[in-house]
């Protein structure tokens, strides 16, 4: 099957098997920032932005991304030019093992795109779908709060 969509700002044509998920597709394209934590939609390690909203890419069938705008953390910033949220996560010590970090940054970015001044409750709510076992969420919440 074939689909056309925008991936990290580039128009992309993808060929895929019918059962393929966006998560698998992204990793097959060497976009490794999306991670496997459960493949059941419970952990958020595979978070991607779909038309500016954070979603779990392991639950997104490839054929449904037709015409959509898909973003991963690679679209926010690069090693040479970090996005301000990436920098904030570093500065606040919000990164420990880093496995859930790209997903958390994307969930935070989705929140900030719809709400420039989120309350702490808004941030907790936006991050709740991104399970983290290292930080207790204290510093990630702080990293987003300072925005």
């Amino acid at each position: 099957m074939k689909v056309t969509f925008t991936l990290n700002g580039k128009e992309t044509k993808a060929e895929f098997a019918p059962g393929e998920t966006l998560f698998h597709y992204l990793r097959s394209q060497e976009i490794y920032s999306v991670k496997n934590g459960c493949e059941l939609g419970e952990c958020g390690a595979c978070t991607a932005l779909v038309d500016n909203k954070a979603q779990n890419s392991c639950l997104i069938m490839m054929h449904t991304v037709e015409g959509k705008k898909i973003e991963t953390v690679e679209n926010l910033g690069s090693k040479n030019n970090l996005h301000h949220l990436q920098q904030k996560f570093l500065d606040e010590g919000a990164v420990q093992c880093g496995y859930c970090t790209p997903g958390m940054i994307l969930a935070s970015e989705a929140l900030l795109r719809e709400n420039k001044q989120p309350s702490t409750e808004d941030i907790r709510d936006a991050l709740a779908g991104n399970l983290c076992r290292c930080t207790g969420y204290v510093k990630p919440i702080k990293a987003v709060s300072h925005e």
Binding site: E30, K79, L82, V95
Partner: peptide, 23 residues
Amino acid sequence: KKTVRVDGLALVSGQPVFADDLQ
């Protein structure tokens, strides 16, 4: 003193640094 993690840049930018990040 506070020091930014030496591996932090790679982690926030989603570099292929975990065991499964290779083909």
